[in-house]
Structure formats: C-alpha cells, structure tokens
Design a protein around this nucleic acid. Structure first.
Lengths: 162, 162
DNA sequence: TAACACCCTGTAGTCACTCCAGGGTCAAGC
DNA sequence: GCTTGACCCTGGAGTGACTACAGGGTGTTA
C-alpha cells in the first residue's frame, strides 16, 4: 500500500510515518517505479506497535530498544522489565505532580469569583504573593544591591490586597 | 546582583534567565561597566513569578499575558479567569489520561515476573498483541497488497505465545 | 603571572513531531 | 491532448522551553 493508505489504516499522519523512517524506527520500504513508497503488512504491524508504545508515552528511543527485543527474542528480557519499570516510575511521578498541580490551580481558581479589575483579582494576588514567598530565600539572606529600577509592579500588586 | 547570584537566589539556571530575557519575559537589566548584567529586586520578583507560574505548568505565552495584567491592574480580570480555567481544564484532561496510562503500564508490568528470554516475555507479547489488535481495522478491511518483505518478526513474536 | 570562577554572545541541539515550498505522478473528465 | 485535483516526493524550517557549547572577556586570589 501507499503511504496515504498506511496512514489511513493506522491513523498516523504521513509526515509522522516519514519521520519514523528517517529516525530509523520503520525500515525503508520498497519503492514503486514512480518512486512512491510501497508498504506491506509488516510495516503496518510495526507502525501499530510504535503507536501503541507512544500511546503508553514510551519514548522513541525506548521504542527502538523494544523493537530490537522483538527482532532478537532469544535475548534475556530483564531489560524490558527495567524499561517498563522506569516508564511506570516516570508516569507515577508525573501523576503525583499533576495531582498537586490540579489542587493548586483549583485553589487558585476559587480565589476569583465575580468580575472586577485585574488589580483586585485574587488569582493574580495569589500568584504574586506565592512567587514572593518563594523568592524570600533571597530577601532573608543577601541584602538587595543598588536597584534604581525598583518600585516593582509586582510588589504594588501584592500590596493592593492588604 | 549578577546573573549567577540571581540564579542562585531563585534556583533558576542562568541560561534560562538569559532565555527569558530574549523571549521578552524578563526586562533587559542595566549593565555594569564590564558588560555584566546588573539585576535588582524587581527582576528577582518577576523571575520568581515566572517560575511559580511555570511550576503550575502555565505556558510562557500565558505567563506573558499574566505579567501584562500585573502591569495594568486597571484592566478587567475576566481573561485571567479564562486563562486559569483553560489551564485547569488542560491539567485535568492530562491527569485523566495519565491515570489511564498508569493503569495500562501496571497491567503490562504484571505480565512479566521471572527472568527469561525476550521471546517469552509477557510484556513484549502484550505490546505486540495490543498493537496487532489496534491495527485490525486494516486487516478486516483492505486486503494486503503484494508484500514480498513479509514474514514479520512481530507476527512470529505474537504467535510464540500460543 | 597563572589558575580559576564567573560573565558575554551567538549558535546549535533536544524531543516528537508538524508544516511548507517546490516539484513529480496519476486517474478522471472535457 | 489538456486540465483538474488528489496524491506523492525531497529537503528544510518551525514548535516550546529550555540546554549545551564554542570562543572569547573579566575579576579575584595565590
């Protein structure tokens, strides 16, 4: 089949297919007389495998390693376990930080209900204040140098709340 | 303070600070006689604000918009709400897909316990089989064209299970 | 004087695509 | 035979948010 048909069959953009070929994930297919790529069932399977792995958020580098295991089934599979374990660990860590993110954003969102000017916006105040708090490592320690550009917008935005 | 000190105070890499300047998020600081950047408290606050927003996974483009609200507090804040709402929606959608991902990966991981060859690895079989199932839209529909490169590794890896 | 930490600019690389310009190929309709 | 339009080709650039590096200058200490 042609590249468009392969794309249709797998739901993969043809630019992405060519990209996978260039990246060495899909073997170069045969060509027709007119130069068009001619794919077979093996390419379709391989592409589906790649997309399935990508749906599991496995990096292309790791997909490449998995494809080598597929090509060499006699090899010890310990590395596959490691790869999936690492992937799982990454996903779990990201999941945890996304949960925290969601909490923070929800809290932030609840700070602003009715419409008013940005100067009175609880969200903006919260963002400025939180950033201010995080930067306090500096304020507690090193004293500010000469700062002729001061009178910061941020500080005044923060103060307007009080 | 110099760029290194600002970086230390905020925990931001100096390359990233320069990048924010080039991207128009941090105003160009004054320069010392030797050409070194000279930052003040306002820069520190602004940088802390940017990092706090980035920790909330807000894009630099949106951070830029928020910074404009900080600079113009008289503006109506409706857009801030929208921005945070959109951000929250994005985070929640990603959270949902990450949860699904975690479930899939856990299931996958449980397919392989003891050590053995890749050819007998449940993880690999599962990946191949799942990809095969997803590609079946093609197998059910269009019949395979001439494919002289067939006898796919994937198919044999899948079969070895049975 | 040398070593070393720090700073400068400008450019290129990362990941996984996505888009585009400028061209060739092919089947259908006039 | 000609045009239209869908499809294909290559090579290169752009995305976001950094990160790394080359090749140089500056400042302090030994």
């Amino acid at each position: 089949m042609r590249i468009g048909e392969l794309g249709q069959a797998t739901g993969v953009d043809i630019e992405t297919i060519r990209y996978y070929e260039k990246a060495g994930l899909l073997p170069e297919p045969a060509r027709r007389n007119n130069g068009y790529r001619a794919y077979g069932a093996s390419h379709l399977e391989r592409l589906a495998f790649i997309r399935h792995c990508r749906a599991l958020d496995i990096s292309l580098a790791d997909v490449k390693r998995l494809l080598e295991f597929v090509a060499h089934p006699e090899v010890d599979c310990g590395d596959i376990d490691c790869l999936i374990d690492a992937q799982l660990a990454r996903v779990r860590a990201r999941l945890e930080s996304m949960r925290a993110l969601e909490r923070q954003l929800s809290a932030l969102r609840s700070r602003c209900g009715a419409r008013h000017s940005a100067g009175d916006c609880g969200i903006l105040h919260e963002l400025v204040a939180a950033a201010h708090g995080e930067a306090c490592a500096y304020h507690r320690g090193v004293p500010p140098e000469q700062d002729k550009t001061a009178t910061s917008d941020m500080a005044s935005a923060g103060r307007r709340k009080a």
